[in-house]
Write a protein that binds this DNA or RNA. Structure first.
Lengths: 201, 201
DNA sequence: CTTGACACATACCAACCGGTATGTATGATC
DNA sequence: GATCATACATACCGGTTGGTATGTGTCAAG
């Protein structure tokens, strides 16, 4: 009856991606299961076969969609780098030169969910915090290698600095989303890059 | 029949404050008018007498609750200062020494609404952006005075720097909200203060 | 060939949502 | 003292929500 007969993991993936898009636009609480199902062409039977409830779907989106995205975009470029500042500035420059239109209009999916769900649901907060701390951890480790290699000023405290860098980046994205101007986005990233300069030895 | 017989502006104020609290906790879209009315002890008749619809209530909260709060907390300390960096660092120190528990658990009301509503509703985005740009404007003006007074490094571009400062601050608050630790909040504010040091001449 | 688990589709439900229509007590105006 | 707008309260409504119960076709195992 169906075009692609019985491909459960593909169905699950379609649900995850549609849910991600809907959540990215409207947030989790305002995300409509009906809309998600309309986008996929599936029905509630499929959804509730793969996920026990809406919350589980949201948590799965964090773990199976957002986490890999973030790992590819933000974690990978910093892995094993001995010059973390240069690597991050290259990353920022890439983001500034060809800004993802989705990011400027809809913001960072991780940050969006953190702002919305952290005060509301503890399970969400813990899952999001795990991902966030992974990010901070990656930056911290990179900064430590930079300290060893001599790129980073010896006065820099890797943990606090990494937390601030990620926070400032999320802040820049968030404010630019509200302004909805790529110019503001570029300017803010430029200032962040300028801040990274002050960490050099 | 009522305790305080016919006090329309007081009633309106109670609605605004209850709406602010509900929105601060759950966001605008998830904010329930029923909850707001239950908190105030009022009914829908009162609500829809003072506000045409939910959206108008939300916009009024921004203008009549959040804007004055922000003006008192963030704008006033920077008004007419010739040493903006010192003033902002004093502000941050005050926030770090006795952090508002509501801010760490629920975040900045302005930022919460920006993240949630900017992509969803244009009227909200414009109103929020107006408030946000007022904030950036205050910081920009302060930095310009600092340039004249010699406190601020001549290489500093006031507008871009102000945008970044506000963004970084909102980022710090947002990330700390997710972490729900005052220690992280303090650390992030400390790094922001450290960044402000690099702007000195 | 039968059986049974899997992978969905369909139909349905109670709860809640924002919003409205109507009723009513109060206070000022003339 | 009658009139009338104001300031609410009460009752109700259609739509949407997340969730469930049941039906059905497919496929693999025995």
């Amino acid at each position: 009856m169906n075009a692609s007969i019985k491909t459960p993991d593909l169905t699950r993936q379609k649900l995850l991606e549609a849910a991600f898009a809907e959540i990215h636009r409207n947030g989790f609480q305002a995300a409509s299961l009906t809309h998600i199902l309309a986008d996929t062409g599936l029905t509630k039977g499929a959804l509730y076969h793969h996920f026990p409830d809406k919350k589980a779907l949201g948590l799965a989106v964090i773990e199976e969609v957002i986490r890999p995205q973030l790992a590819a975009m933000m974690f990978a470029p910093l892995a094993d780098t001995q010059q973390p500042l240069a690597a991050m500035q290259a990353l920022l420059k890439g983001k500034a030169s060809e800004p993802d239109p989705w990011v400027v209009t809809l913001g960072c999916p991780l940050n969006n969910l953190m702002q919305e769900m952290s005060p509301v649901d503890e399970a969400f907060r813990l899952q999001l915090n795990s991902l966030f701390e992974a990010w901070v951890g990656v930056v911290t480790a990179a900064l430590k290698r930079g300290l060893k290699s001599g790129e980073v000023n010896a006065a820099v405290k890797p943990g606090d600095t990494a937390f601030f860098i990620v926070s400032a980046l999320e802040g820049c994205i968030g404010m630019s989303k509200n302004t909805q101007s790529v110019a503001a986005y570029r300017g803010c990233l430029g200032q962040l890059s300028h801040y990274l300069d002050t960490l050099k030895s």
